[in-house]
Nucleic acid binder design. Structure first.
Lengths: 121, 121
DNA sequence: AATTAATTACTTACTTTTTTGTCATCACAC
DNA sequence: GTGTGATGACAAAAAAGTAAGTAATTAATT
């Protein structure tokens, strides 16, 4: 029997959730969806509040889960670039939907909102 | 300034996430989306592994956030019914997407999957 | 008919687990 | 000295789980 992390699923939603659960994951994915590729520090600066350690963790999990890819740009002073894989891209309708839903919610309820295309969070 | 939980948002995705973050929330919403209305014990039995305490908590938060409604069917032996509010329904494209994405993932990777229309998890 | 058992929707006190965060440190280059 | 992308020990906080108990009623058993 072929299983995903030793578990036989009965609910497909539960399967999807497995890939996006984590405080920063969806924000990271949305960021990469928006900017196509980002370095570690760009991501860090775009996600106010993330600790570097946690960002590294989430990036590693996303990479292991094949949602994002990691490309080394230079070795000596290590420079990397993160981007969405095909699988990561296949979930983009979700990022777009959540973004639209959030905007609609804020507008409907007259809640102040600072639009900053450089900040994600 | 009108704010949402004392915070000025810069990212709409972050706004949406606020309503669905919680181990069981999306599953509860998906369940209600699928079945339209459910009692406390129906939800409990459909979500293998939830503790009643946690289910109560998540339901309360979803209700406070106006994602679900709670209707009392009888007072003496308390009987209630949960259902999606308009706001909860407005997020249904998301539940559907996650469900489809999960199925596609499982099929693409040849992972075994028990289809049980009565179990959500 | 009387007693017991089961069900419903929770609630409470407490423990455990999981997840996050803090802070220091690293090698390397400019 | 600054910036790059990390890693590790440890602490704190958040989330989730365990187990028991509640009131009210219906169902089952004796």
């Amino acid at each position: 029997m072929i299983t995903l992390h030793d578990k036989v699923y009965t609910c497909p939603v539960d399967v999807s959730l497995r890939f996006i659960s984590g405080k920063w994951k969806i924000l990271i994915l949305f960021n990469l969806f928006h900017f196509e590729k980002r370095s570690f520090s760009e991501l860090r600066d775009n996600l106010p509040g993330v600790a570097e350690k946690v960002l590294t963790q989430q990036l590693k999990e996303l990479e292991k889960d094949n949602m994002i890819g990691r490309r080394i740009l230079s070795e000596k002073p290590l420079r990397v670039e993160y981007f969405l894989t095909e699988q990561g891209i296949s979930m983009s309708p979700m990022y777009e939907f959540l973004s639209k839903w959030g905007i609609a919610y804020l507008e409907k309820n007259g809640i102040d909102y600072i639009q900053d295309q450089h900040l994600y969070k």
